[in-house]
């Protein structure tokens, strides 16, 4: 057992599989992330294609969430966090000194692990982004945008009669869909999801997964998940992270039926993680 672990740890950490896709929405090359003196991500290269769902799986602490938060510079708010390497959105370097992270985050939206609606009404939660970015010119346009966003998030029929009720009063699954509606309302190109279903029950999870599949028509989606079944259900490509390394990436089908790397195989067959 012990010698087996040793053997595995000496195996190559080079990424197995093709991490690039033609005409990528986001292109990451040799990304390294440091928290103070500790290196959390070791030179990861990975592309996110257009209209695809890319899932990132791996054991706790493998860096998948950290990597996700690099994609819209949410790591900027953490003290002592440094990012090096290249991350491009539509060919534009997002860690460029001249680039303002604020409009970037409107283009790369994010849905969090725990639903975090603002303590405002359902309407105001969705209208928040459009208002701060001045996306609409009048109340009618804003109303229409709120309705479209809620419809796209599959929440409209459940809340159309109580748009003035507080968003925090919804059920967990509804709150998470409200957060997705809120993100859609600013028309992002990419949506990042950090374990969006981990706080939800199976029925709410199924609804969100269905929604993710529908959203793929208009957005590129990167999702971090602990559930391998979820990754298999919603994503087209899957990336397996291990201790800060991107171990293997490929078509979801291939990763789950025919993994190339020992670590990937061990993880998806449930030998650890």
């Amino acid at each position: 057992m012990r010698s087996g672990e040793l053997a595995r740890s000496q195996e190559s950490r080079e990424t197995v599989g093709d991490y690039s896709v033609p005409d990528a929405r986001m292109r990451c090359r040799d990304v390294e992330v440091w928290y103070g003196d500790k290196r959390a991500i070791h030179g990861v290269s990975l592309d996110l294609g257009r209209n695809e769902v890319l899932s990132m799986i791996g054991p706790s602490g493998c860096g998948k969430s950290t990597f996700l938060r690099c994609l819209n510079r949410m790591n900027d708010t953490i003290d002592g966090c440094r990012v090096s390497g290249s991350i491009q959105l539509d060919g534009e370097e997002i860690y460029d000194r001249a680039l303002d992270p604020v409009p970037l985050r409107a283009r790369v939206g994010m849905v969090f692990q725990k639903p975090n609606p603002f303590p405002k009404s359902i309407y105001e939660n969705v209208a928040y982004g459009p208002r701060i970015h001045g996306l609409t010119n009048n109340k009618t346009e804003l109303d229409a945008l709120v309705e479209t966003s809620l419809r796209k998030a599959g929440l409209w029929d459940e809340v159309k009669d109580r748009l003035d009720a507080p968003g925090t009063g919804l059920s967990g699954g509804q709150q998470q869909r409200l957060c997705i509606a809120r993100t859609i309302a600013v028309s992002p190109e990419v949506i990042l999801m950090d374990e969006p279903c981990s706080a939800l029950d199976p029925i709410a999870t199924a609804i969100i997964e269905e929604l993710i599949d529908e959203l793929r028509a208009n957005y590129s989606i990167a999702i971090v998940t602990h559930s391998m079944q979820q990754a298999a259900r919603v994503s087209q490509r899957t990336a397996y992270f291990h201790l800060g390394d991107l171990i293997e990436v490929g078509e979801t089908n291939q990763i789950f039926t025919n993994p190339q790397h020992r670590l990937t195989e061990d993880y998806i067959t449930g030998r650890f993680g």
Partner: peptide, 27 residues
Amino acid sequence: VPQSLRDGSYALGATESETIKRVIIPA
């Protein structure tokens, strides 16, 4: 006020002052 509300606002492209004015102070 929970950090998750700040994160939610930043992730929508709000600036610090917009977050304070529209999320933190009301909460």
